[in-house]
Write a protein that binds this DNA or RNA. Structure first.
Lengths: 257, 257
DNA sequence: ATATATACTGTGGTCTGACCTCTGCGCGGT
DNA sequence: ACCGCGCAGAGGTCAGACCACAGTATATAT
């Protein structure tokens, strides 16, 4: 059942490779973690040049479906679902994503995530959350350490939600947000207050109180947004003035290395 | 400012190309719709082989940041933000995304989208929505036509939300869901009732009643989920039994073309 | 003069086959 | 038992020729 006409690759050789692999994955012939045959060999068996095979693999690798390790081999991704974070940030600059939009998306997703985590979270998640909260209290005098456990906490919540799709989405957004945050100065957030909010969220989740978890998470994020000096207002204004150089052409001089 | 260590491509030549382009984009030297120099020329100027250049471009193209048109040239993507839909479906089979999870994600995102659309929708959106509703009523005896306008309606709502990030996310999920739906039989949904629900949503949006729009959309989606014979229950059960062939190896025989 | 072929040019797509680099691991020396 | 050297396997890069497609200019027929 040859699947033709994917989306962008207007090419067909590479597409053939992609579809072949896709089929193998869908049929369960290839499972996460599996290694595919060496390029030369695989290329021969598929009757395409190694170059084309590589193009196809590159396509899948770029999407995070496959993982290529120089000198070792090519494997099917096995980690948690993960959309192109690189893609997201690129798309961001390209389409002028703004902080307030990211925050809005995060707020919506994560508040629901917290509610779901409260409904479905398992003991292991509760334990992991407790650990992170503890770590946060212990790292209140070390912002860079603190932020790590902050992220971890939110990641665990997303896993506890039981919906890998939502988890993957929020993960993508968070990483983009993290990139931005890392660039700005380590603002003087009140880490103690932050830690306490996390603790409350944790308690709500453990107590299986979805609505409360949802509300707390929402509150926490709103606070984080303003506290971290989101220039949302400024962004919003700047947005209009920008984005109006629609003419298209190339300036080889500036592009040339 | 060389950005090293992207994510997956452990290679450096191709990465060099990606970073170079990334920088050009971030600096505004390349705007959406722009055409980059011909491969041969560009490769020479970057001092890499054409093959490596192509690898890098392929990476960006796979993420939807660039658009390659055979016989024409390579351009910076200019359409609306769009994450790898292909990626999503691949990831789906790979991580066993299930329908109920997709629906859950859709429900959360789209209900908020409706609320935001009610808050921020502009006249143009209202008009477009009205058009689609009209088309839906006119295509009630033609399911395949109907579904097109159904999708269009939801897409317009996402645009009216004013948050391109959320719009892109829901778009990705919807396309995955659409793929699934297309495969199953054209269920006998009550198109008239569906059309009327859309009309009500439209009215709530036009009347700028966020909460009502939110509620209606939620209701609509829940109904759609059950009406379309979601095998959520079955899925859920099947999920557990599956996914336990963790051993990893290759069966060249079955992989070979 | 208009319209339909046809040829040309520019650009991406594929192929070949040789060579480079990295990883992992085994063999041998200490 | 330990360390290090080197081989083998796998991916990464390269060069250059050639193929395929799209758009345009040109020639030819009506």
């Amino acid at each position: 059942m040859p699947r033709i006409k994917q989306d962008e690759p207007d090419t067909h050789r590479a597409m053939h490779v992609v579809n072949h692999l896709r089929t193998l994955i869908e049929n369960g012939d290839l499972l996460p973690g599996d290694k595919i045959p060496p390029e030369r060999e695989f290329a021969r068996s598929l009757k395409v040049s190694r170059a084309s095979l590589r193009t196809g693999i590159g396509y899948l690798a770029a999407m995070g479906v496959m993982k290529v390790r120089h000198g070792v081999g090519t494997f099917i991704a096995d980690g948690p679902a993960e959309f192109g974070k690189t893609s997201f940030s690129l798309m961001g600059v390209l389409h002028g994503f703004q902080s307030w939009q990211m925050f809005e998306a995060r707020l919506i997703l994560e508040s629901h995530l917290a509610a779901l985590a409260a409904e479905r979270g398992k003991q292991e998640h509760h334990a992991a959350l407790a650990d992170e909260v503890a770590e946060m209290f212990g790292a209140m005098d070390n912002p860079s350490d603190y932020i790590v456990h902050d992220l971890l906490f939110h990641r665990i919540v997303s896993q506890a939600s039981g919906n890998p799709i939502l988890a993957a989405l929020i993960e993508t957004i968070m990483s983009a947000l993290y990139d931005k945050r890392r660039k700005t100065v380590e603002r003087s957030i009140d880490l103690r207050e932050s830690a306490e909010m996390h603790r409350e969220i944790y308690r709500a989740i453990r107590a299986r109180k979805p609505e409360e978890a949802r509300r707390l998470m929402e509150e926490h994020l709103r606070m984080a947004e303003t506290a971290q000096g989101m220039e949302s207002a400024a962004d919003r204004k700047a947005a209009k003035t920008a984005r109006m150089g629609k003419t298209a052409r190339v300036k080889p001089s500036s592009i040339t290395s």
